[in-house]
């Protein structure tokens, strides 16, 4: 499995943000990670990316443990956070070159050109992050993640700050990467996006997985497979918000 999570727990002091979380994401799968605010989605993704050290449990990327074999695991991983944190003094192209050096990417000039065209960043190669809009900075972060052939892609709210064209392109890019065999874990509050592009959905609440399956499986399990049922209905019912939403 490209991404394997076993009994993951992450605590901040006495507060448990993620508890006993286990799931797997195979190559070619696009898994949507959804949940209300504070459910533990970002903590999960950061633990998977090696930013946060798990308090307990294991995270493996292509079989490499993120703690014990951090370098090998990280080499196969691309994490695209919700906030575009870039180096203030490096240009767009320099960010891509830096990423290429870090991940030993060959032919970076060609790849960078293709990617910058794809993400509509052409003409901004020599701009510093401070000269870009938030959406463009987000695209640079995504470009840094996509410039290499990662087997596991982690997206945390990838569409934040993007314009409609950017959202569409991003959606296509994610699907294309999934079809190309990458394991994708995507966290988003945009349920229609998750419903549209994800092959499987994990719903989190209170730091735990409360539902895991395809849209059809979840709907069938919750007996709301009637016409017009949507992921939103499933989400509301699973997280117990249905009554309050009414």
């Amino acid at each position: 499995m490209a991404i394997s999570v076993e009994h993951l727990r992450r605590q901040y002091g006495s507060f448990t943000a993620v508890d006993d979380m286990s799931f797997e994401v195979g190559g070619g799968e696009i898994v949507g990670l959804i949940g209300p605010n504070g459910a533990g989605k970002t903590t999960t993704l950061r633990s998977l990316a090696g930013i946060l050290r798990p308090t307990a449990g294991h995270v493996r990327i292509d079989g490499y443990d993120i703690v014990e074999h951090a370098i090998e695991a990280k080499r196969r991983l691309a994490f695209m956070p919700d906030e575009p944190h870039l180096f203030e003094y490096l240009t767009v192209l320099e960010h891509l070159r830096l990423t290429a050096r870090l991940y030993a990417v060959h032919d970076i000039d060609h790849r960078a050109k293709v990617l910058l065209d794809e993400l509509e960043l052409s003409g901004k190669e020599h701009a510093l992050p401070g000269e870009l809009s938030r959406g463009m900075r987000q695209k640079v972060v995504i470009a840094c993640g996509l410039v290499r052939e990662a087997t596991a892609l982690l997206f945390d709210e990838p569409l934040t700050g993007l314009d409609p064209i950017g959202i569409r392109k991003m959606r296509e890019t994610i699907v294309a990467r999934g079809r190309a065999g990458a394991a994708i874990l995507l966290s988003s509050h945009l349920l229609h996006l998750v419903e549209e592009i994800c092959t499987r959905i994990i719903i989190m609440d209170g730091g735990r997985i409360v539902a895991d399956g395809t849209f059809a499986e979840l709907a069938a399990h919750l007996e709301i497979a009637a016409a017009g049922s949507s992921l939103e209905q499933i989400f509301m019912r699973v997280t117990g918000r249905e009554t309050s939403a009414r």
């Binding site: 950061r46 090696g50 930013i51 370098i71 090998e72 695991a73 990280k74 991983l77 994490f79 870090l102």
Partner: peptide
């Protein structure tokens, strides 16, 4: 300030 990003890098 960039620790979050640097921790994802596959470096010694």
């Amino acid at each position: 300030r960039h620790l979050e990003l640097m921790k994802t890098w596959p470096l010694d």
